[in-house]
């Protein structure tokens, strides 16, 4: 201890209080590590174990080791594959929509204008709401008999959320509404970091607006836009709340919803643990692909 004390800055406040660097480090690290182990690491490992058993949390029957049977069952189940297809379609629709809307809004906002701060704040409101609440009031907006969407579009009693074709689009639409501001926010940060003199140089060099956009704006914003896409893809992949509230169509049964049903309505704890692991692997794989692209974009 004395040894540690002598290595401290003589006039540091920590030294005055009698705390060494080591004890300060412990003070911050131990609670975090404990928390992570109890709530993240242990469940992760434990669910990996249950994934190889026929455990059901609803019974007192002991768990039996079944080996790879759960994984085999899941991967050969055409309904599970259907859930994956639906989710993939949903992710593509909603992330694409968010990038287009969010980046477009950012382009519109990236100029001197009156009330810019206020407008930006208002545009960001959707992502501050609870997804469950968002689901509930979009259900009202989509309502076939008194919903305002049908009223404005003049669609009569069109059933957005019950129509097998449109339901997934309707759910994705809500996600786009809610999370475009997130993409907008990151894009805005990226856009405002593009040095103004580059645009002036391009103007002098007689570059047209499209040329300028694709040669200057987009390459410079690409890395941060990529981060937004990574975040949104991961989040969209695990969408549950508003989708569950909005629609109970088989065509809108995302992975997370299927997983929820399997685990907490059917109480197939072992099977659902295995399912969760499959989902985890898929998400990690997708993220890795993106990160690779991101690093490439940064290295250029």
């Amino acid at each position: 201890m004395a040894d540690v004390m002598t290595r401290l800055e003589p006039n540091s406040r920590a030294a005055a209080r009698g705390l060494s660097d080591l004890s300060i480090r412990n003070l911050f690290i131990i609670p975090t590590i404990t928390f992570l182990i109890v709530f993240n690491v242990f469940p992760l490992i434990y669910s990996l174990y249950t994934g190889f058993t026929d455990y059901r949390a609803s019974t007192t029957a002991p768990a039996n080791w079944v080996g790879l049977a759960n994984f085999r069952e899941l991967l050969s189940d055409p309904f599970i594959w259907r859930n994956f297809t639906i989710t993939a379609k949903y992710v593509v629709i909603s992330v694409t929509g968010q990038v287009i809307v969010g980046f477009g809004l950012a382009m519109l906002l990236n100029r001197p204008m009156a009330l810019k701060g206020l407008i930006t704040t208002l545009l960001m409101l959707p992502m501050m709401l609870s997804p469950a609440v968002v689901g509930l009031f979009w259900k009202l907006l989509y309502d076939p008999s008194f919903g305002i969407i049908n009223y404005f579009l003049g669609l009569g009693k069109f059933e957005w959320l019950a129509d097998p074709q449109m339901a997934l689009w309707a759910v994705a639409m809500v996600d786009i509404w809610m999370w475009s501001p997130f993409v907008m926010l990151l894009s805005l940060a990226g856009l405002s970091a593009v040095p103004k003199h580059l645009y002036e140089a391009a103007e002098i060099d007689r570059a047209g607006p499209f040329y300028t956009f694709f040669r200057i704006t987009l390459p410079l914003v690409a890395p941060i836009l990529m981060i937004a896409i990574i975040f949104r893809t991961m989040e969209a992949f695990k969408t549950f709340d508003h989708a569950y509230i909005l629609s109970s169509q088989p065509t809108t049964e995302l992975i997370a919803i299927r997983l929820y049903k399997m685990a907490f309505l059917e109480w197939q704890t072992g099977l659902s643990s295995a399912f969760a692991y499959i989902v985890l692997i898929v998400v990690v794989a997708i993220t890795n692909i993106y990160v690779k692209y991101l690093n490439k974009a940064k290295a250029r």
Partner: peptide, 21 residues
């Protein structure tokens, strides 16, 4: 006339090179 129409070249202190090219 706009900057593009004036046929002038401008060299700036900050170089203003187009990045990633």
């Amino acid at each position: 006339w706009t900057a593009a129409e004036r046929d002038v070249a401008l060299v700036l202190q900050q170089y203003s090179l187009y990045p990633r090219l």
